[in-house]
Each structure stands twice: as C-alpha cells, then as structure tokens.
C-alpha cells in the first residue's frame, strides 16, 4: 500500500508537469532529432538569422515599446539586436517562473507551508529548476527556444559579445552530462519537486514540514528510477549529485547578471527576475 501511495504521487506530479510546462522533454527530443511531423525549427546561427528569426519569437509578454516598428529595417547595430534578444529571453524566463510556481503549488502539501517559506523555496529553487528544464532543450550543438520553434546554435551564443557569450556555455556543459542520465518527463517531474522542496535554503522559518515533504518525494523518485531504469546502476545517487552542480551554476549565473546590470546601461531586468536574484547568493 505504501508503494501504491508513492506511485500515485509520481502520477500526480507527472500530470501537473504536463499541465504547466508547454514543451516537454519528449517533444523537444523529437524536434531535435527531426522526428516530428511539423516543420523543422527556424535556425538562428548568426546576426542575420537572429534578425530574421525575431518574428518567430513568441513574445506574448513583451511590452509594446519593445516590438519592432515599421522602420525596423533601418540600420541596427549588433549590440542593439543582442540587447533586444536578451529582453525577449528575459520575458520568456519570467513566464517560465510563473509555470514553475504553478507546478510547485501542485505538489501536495506545498501550499500548506508557511507562505514566507513558499517564497524562499521558489526564490532559491526556481533558477535551478529552469536550468534542469533547459537541459531537455539542449544538445551539444544548440538549444530550442520559443516553445521549440527556434533552434539557436551553441556557436552563435558563444559568438555574442561579453558577457552574453558566457551565459549559456556552462549550461551546455552541464546539460550534456545531465542528459546522459536519460531521465524522461515522469522522472523529471519528481526531480524538480525534490529540488523545490530543499529544506536547507537560507532563511526558512519552518524546516521540518519541508523536509518531510521532500522525504516522500525522494522515496517516490527512488522507486520510480528503479522501475523506469532497471539497468541504470546508482541512477538515484547520480541524479541527486547533480544538485550540487546546480547550486554552483546558479551562483555563477546570478553573478553574470549582476555584471550585466553594471556594464549594460540600457539593460533593465524584469521585475520578477530582479526579485528572485536580489540577495540570492
């Protein structure tokens, strides 16, 4: 009966993962390997294709002033294009934070935690979750963006000016190793919940109920990995080890963003991302 409860939890979290996250790993892998019936993604590999591909970028959240005017074809410098692309990226990230928040709220027991602790768990967990989810969209040559409509090459991201060029490379390195574990979407749902329910985030008021919730999800993840990957030795331990790398990645990411804020006078950070990154590490 206890294992039946854990299976039910795994099913529930997988269902809410499918409900809140628009691009699953299964779908992303199909697009990346060219196995979808739809059209192939638009490839951005240089400044010219970036300018052309902007029309495909899903930017529901962009303020009107950010949209290209009818005079958009007047000479634009590469740095303007880079900056505008970064803005769009940010708005998609803020939308992704909202998706992760809805997913967190669907974890049984999460909304009963102290509201301040819910905020702390999200503040510290959300970038880790987004990095893990981005790994699903990456291969060694590039990554899908805009809900899978665009493939942006790794070389192009590396060619941007400093410090933009340094933003994604560590995530690619992480993703290539993480993807070797071959987790599927149902495993990912549980792993993301484990990350969110970390009882050691700074400033938590009431750690015990968080640890209790995490313990149940950890047992579920362990059982799930044994059943889903019977031949993969020590997979549970390997997955948990990734949590250490993630913290370092987030730390480096936040420092890069802080550097950007100093060097790019025209850059304004989305208010939600500001809230999350302020005094994070």
């Amino acid at each position: 009966p206890e294992s039946a409860d854990l299976r039910a939890l795994a099913k529930h979290l997988y269902e809410s993962y499918l409900k809140y996250f628009p691009l699953t790993k299964a779908k992303a892998r199909a697009i990346l390997s060219g196995k979808t019936s739809g059209s192939a993604p638009f490839v951005i590999h240089d400044m010219k294709s970036l300018t052309e591909g902007e029309q495909f970028i899903n930017c529901r959240q962009m303020p009107v002033m950010e949209q290209r005017s009818e005079f958009g074809h007047v000479q634009e410098s590469a740095s303007e294009v880079e900056l505008r692309f970064f803005h769009r990226w940010q708005y998609r990230s803020a939308e992704a934070v909202r998706e992760v928040t809805e997913f967190a709220k669907s974890i049984p027991g999460f909304v009963s935690l102290d509201l301040n602790d819910q905020v702390t768990l999200l503040k510290y967990g959300v970038i880790e979750v987004l990095i893990i989810m981005t790994a699903s969209l990456m291969n060694k040559d590039g990554m899908l963006i805009s809900y899978g409509q665009i493939f942006m090459t790794r070389e192009f991201l590396k060619s941007l000016r400093k410090p933009f060029c340094e933003m994604m490379e560590p995530k690619f390195e992480f993703a290539i190793k993480f993807n070797m574990l071959e987790l599927d979407d149902s495993d990912m749902a549980l792993f993301l919940a484990v990350i969110i329910l970390s009882g050691d985030r700074p400033g938590l008021l009431n750690v015990k109920p968080i640890e209790d919730l995490q313990e149940t999800v950890l047992q579920t993840l362990e059982l799930q990995l044994k059943m889903n990957h019977p031949d993969s030795l020590q997979l549970f331990a390997k997955v948990l080890q990734k949590m250490t790398d993630l913290r370092q990645l987030v730390n480096d990411h936040v420092h890069l963003i802080q550097l950007l804020k100093k060097t790019e006078v025209d850059m304004c950070l989305h208010p939600l991302l500001q809230e999350i990154m302020k005094d994070l590490y």
Binding site: T101, V111, Q118, V119, H270, P271, L272, E275
Partner: peptide
C-alpha cells in the same frame, strides 16, 4: 514581504493568469 511582491502574488493567485 514587500521585497517579493510578485512572487507572493504568483503564489496566492490561483490559476488565473497573472500580469507579469
């Protein structure tokens, strides 16, 4: 609480889309 206004709002509003 003021420091994390939007996060609070995202957590407290149920499924309705939040103006980010």
């Amino acid at each position: 609480k003021e420091k994390h206004k939007i996060l609070h709002r995202l957590l407290q509003n149920s499924t309705s889309p939040v103006d980010l």
